[in-house]
Design a binder for these strands. Structure first.
Lengths: 227, 227
DNA sequence: ACCTGAACACCGTTCAAGT
DNA sequence: ACCTGAACACCGTTCAAGT
């Protein structure tokens, strides 16, 4: 069979992502990848230091699909939305890779790029230093948390079990004990994911907006802050 | 070496968590756990269906450490803060278990309990149905995302490498290319984690507060802001 | 410079057998 | 009801050897 015998980082990358997409994280192994590419397991080590680096390659491939810079945005809020929605879409397109993304992202230059762009937008809200750090942590935490929650949270929809199974499990909970959970399980059954993301993001941005009133003086604030 | 030969779910649970805490996720294996408890690997299967169930046990142990119900809170904002901070502290005390928690939490009854309590607090902000779902997703996404980000994000502090190594890696980035990342890396080096969490949470809650103005139907109300 | 087979030290889990 | 050893089908990675 005319198998291209030449291996390359790029071929490893796309084949690895394909494996993860098709068979889940457990499907990604040096041996499986090698046989997929028609070569010996050890050949892979000529292009990649080990499994960890392979995983970073997968993360890069996923994040690389995010394209947030179609047009520039005058309003920093629009820029924040554009970047986070683009990231979320890319991540969501590869649900099996999410644990990898959460775990290996600090090594991905594609994500560094996105992070810098997001920071740039947030800085335009008038923040710097620690305030900027907190805004950054809040937004990225939110996006990653939402992406993850959808996959594996109590109301998971994207996991390996079909949505109605998960929601059914919730409906089966003792009604008197978890009335609220059952209420939102019903709501979750009929709502679209991106709509939820955007609505949540709007809340976060509203918070970022409100936070601007109180910021400059470090001592007293109007927000329910710790201590 | 008077080893108690009797195995029990509870002994498995604490031993498994101890293994994860001490040696990381990779340190948790049926075989390692068995030898830790002085029994044969297969004995474990008499108390637990398999590795997946063992992992849920670990999640339960971690979440079970969160205690948010010391006193009731009149203000829903205070309740939200109390619950999320308690969860965050418990999770943060076991950083190696975080991937497990993100992945297996939908099976943990301890987390169901916490979720219901959080929903209860959020419902007191005047939300229900889809609005409640979105508020819930936003807050839980935020907390989990932050906990995870701290461990593995671009500014990770809790990973297996010491903080100064990570931050040093950032300082080594091309300054002209990632100026904002370098700026917050400096801020991250001197800031405390719980302070960041609470400040971010304050932003989210401010957003939840602001969101009340815009709500379409009956629950429009202008609550006096905290304090 | 790139590829590879054999081997090592691990996994989770099935099965049949013990008490 | 609880425990267990042997075995199966996997892992990632080292090493020595090939081209």
């Amino acid at each position: 069979m005319g198998r291209p015998a030449k291996l390359s980082r790029e071929r490893l990358q796309t084949a690895a992502l394909a494996l993860v997409d098709a068979h889940g994280l457990a499907g990604l192994s040096m041996r499986a990848l090698a046989s997929e590419l028609g070569s010996a397991p050890m050949t892979i080590y000529n292009h990649v230091a080990g499994r960890a680096e392979l995983e970073v390659l997968v993360v890069e491939a996923v994040i690389g699909e995010a394209d947030w810079s179609r047009e520039p945005h005058d309003d920093w809020r629009d820029a924040v939305v554009a970047i986070t929605v683009a990231l979320w879409r890319a991540v969501r397109a590869h649900p099996h890779a999410i644990p990898l993304i959460l775990t290996r992202r600090s090594r991905s230059t594609a994500l560094l790029e996105a992070s810098e762009a997001l920071l740039d937008a947030l800085a335009r809200s008038g923040r710097s230093g620690r305030e900027l750090l907190i805004a950054f942590r809040t937004v990225t935490g939110f996006v990653m948390g939402i992406a993850q929650a959808e996959l594996a949270g109590p109301l998971s929809v994207a996991a390996d079990e079909p949505a109605d199974v998960v929601i059914g499990r919730f409906r089966a909970l003792p009604r008197f004990r978890y009335p609220r959970l059952i209420e939102i399980a019903d709501a979750a059954a009929t709502s679209d994911a991106e709509g939820e993301l955007r609505a949540g993001l709007a809340l976060v941005i509203a918070g970022l907006d409100a936070g601007l009133d109180a910021t400059p003086s470090p001592s007293r604030r109007r927000l329910p802050v710790a201590q």
